[in-house]
């Protein structure tokens, strides 16, 4: 498990990351979301030790993190590109050896992973010959070398076609299944919603929300909807209820006093047929907009 406490980084007068405390639990896929400039990349670089920490700490399994711990982390930086003019296999073996693997072990691991991404036949080609999507796959293979104990991936899904997204997701789940904590950033909220067990939302250098997606969804006020053919203007007058949206014979309302939704349902039934009634689970995008709003 990786934890940060009050992690802070300034660039000149700008506080890029402001007292970030978050947890990436073992065996969970944690999605790191936030707009451009929210501080995700800076946080990840500090976790990986490639950027100095101005305040705060990073702990790994309860102890302050060391370079030796990080040596067993897999990291995919924000901007892609290995050695453009070197063959794929050669440089992946090189990176594996720097992690302490033997040449033979590195070669076997690289070839197995390239195979999974359908790139085994191109192992001897130079990286610059590959399409951007394939270069990204190679980059992922680099991050997965040596059975990492923690994965930090900066925008691993950007630029991947749907097939590659699926094989990437499957691969991440495999690592999660063997108990590895995975932290990845993304702009694609639906993807994060679909894949992640846990979310950390950043805005303006701060963590504005974190937890499972269910936690986040249910953190706000409980919301219901009711749909009926007639006019629903009366819902406003029920005590303990706050109408948040009204269109095409459907009204959405938040429940301020528990049980108030039952009074709405009873009144609706009394007034005529009810076509639909139920709990509204807001989409992640709405929660995201809400928590990141200034």
């Amino acid at each position: 498990m990786l934890t940060t406490h009050g992690l802070t980084r300034r660039f000149g007068d700008v506080v890029a990351v402001d007292s970030v405390s978050m947890t990436v639990p073992d065996g969970r896929l944690t999605g790191f979301i936030g707009g451009n400039g929210a501080g995700k990349t800076t946080t990840m670089r500090m976790i990986m030790g490639v950027l100095g920490v101005h305040a705060g700490t990073v702990t790994w399994n309860g102890a302050p993190i060391t370079a030796q711990d990080r040596r067993h982390f897999g990291y995919m930086p924000e901007e892609r590109g290995l050695y453009p003019k070197q063959p794929i296999l050669d440089q992946l073996i090189y990176l594996g050896r720097l992690k302490g693997m033997s040449t033979a072990a590195a070669r076997a691991a690289v070839l197995a992973n390239l195979e999974r991404f359908g790139l085994a036949g191109r192992a001897k080609e130079r990286v610059e010959k590959l399409s951007l999507g394939n270069q990204q796959r190679v980059q992922i293979v680099a991050a997965l070398l040596g059975d990492p104990r923690f994965l930090v991936l900066d925008e691993p899904f950007s630029g991947l076609d749907p097939d590659a997204v699926d094989s990437m997701a499957a691969m991440l789940r495999e690592h999660v299944a063997r108990g590895v904590p995975v932290l990845f950033s993304s702009h694609q909220l639906d993807l994060v919603d679909r894949l992640c067990d846990r979310l950390v939302v950043m805005a303006r250098g701060r963590v504005v929300a974190q937890g499972t997606s269910d936690d986040l969804r249910t953190a706000g006020p409980v919301r219901f909807h009711v749909a009926a053919p007639g006019d629903l203007g009366w819902v406003r007058d029920i005590p303990g209820v706050l109408v948040v949206g009204q269109q095409d014979g459907t009204t959405e309302f938040e429940v301020a006093t528990p049980g108030a939704e039952q009074r709405v349902l009873a009144e609706a039934v009394r007034r005529g047929p009810v076509t639909s009634f139920g709990r509204v689970v807001p989409p992640l995008s709405e929660i995201y907009r809400k928590v990141t709003a200034a």
């Binding site: 990986m48 490639v50 990176l95 991050a143």
Partner: peptide
């Protein structure tokens, strides 16, 4: 510069000093 620009140096920096 190539290593710096491509950020491969960040990957290397997490493996060795």
């Amino acid at each position: 510069l190539e290593e710096k620009q491509s950020r491969i140096v960040e990957i290397i920096a997490t493996s060795i000093p």
